[in-house]
């Protein structure tokens, strides 16, 4: 059967689905000063599971927007302008939807898959763990 390590190299998704893998990748990203991209990715997953009837959900959507999108952070820089506008307008109109961050998450995931994930698989931190 697949060892956790074999799964980590299979895809970013399987790395992030593994507790140790996600932890190690997070440590790597902290060192590379781009841990916000991973936190944003997890925040999008967490948000999707929230109850839309709960008043907390709008507050979390606003918090995600404020922390990662409206400023000039690393996440914001990697998002398409149209994606940011869509999220800003949804929050402004208080039209909260479970999938409102999906497009942004996909864009961040693509950049992570092409860059940070590949770098992680050849990093000291990964090779030492292996």
């Amino acid at each position: 059967p697949d060892s956790p390590l074999a799964r980590w190299t299979k895809s970013l998704h399987s790395l992030l689905g593994d507790q140790d893998g996600a932890y190690l990748f997070r440590t790597f990203l902290e060192r590379e000063k781009c841990v916000d991209t991973l936190d944003f990715w997890f925040a999008c997953n967490g948000f999707r599971q929230m109850d839309l009837k709960d008043t907390k959900t709008l507050r979390v959507a606003k918090a995600i927007y404020k922390r990662y999108i409206e400023n000039n952070s690393i996440v914001s820089k990697q998002l398409k302008p149209a994606t940011k506008t869509y999220i800003r307008d949804s929050i402004k109109k208080q039209q909260i939807d479970s999938i409102m961050f999906d497009q942004a998450q996909t864009e961040i995931q693509t950049v992570m898959e092409e860059n940070a994930y590949q770098m992680f698989l050849t990093s000291d931190i990964y090779l030492e763990y292996v």
Partner: peptide, 20 residues
């Protein structure tokens, strides 16, 4: 009352993998 940052951290934590 939860601060916005606490809510955000809880949201992130809820999505992190718990066990292998």
């Amino acid at each position: 009352l939860n601060s916005e940052d606490d809510l955000l951290q809880k949201c992130i934590g809820s999505a992190m993998p718990k066990h292998r």
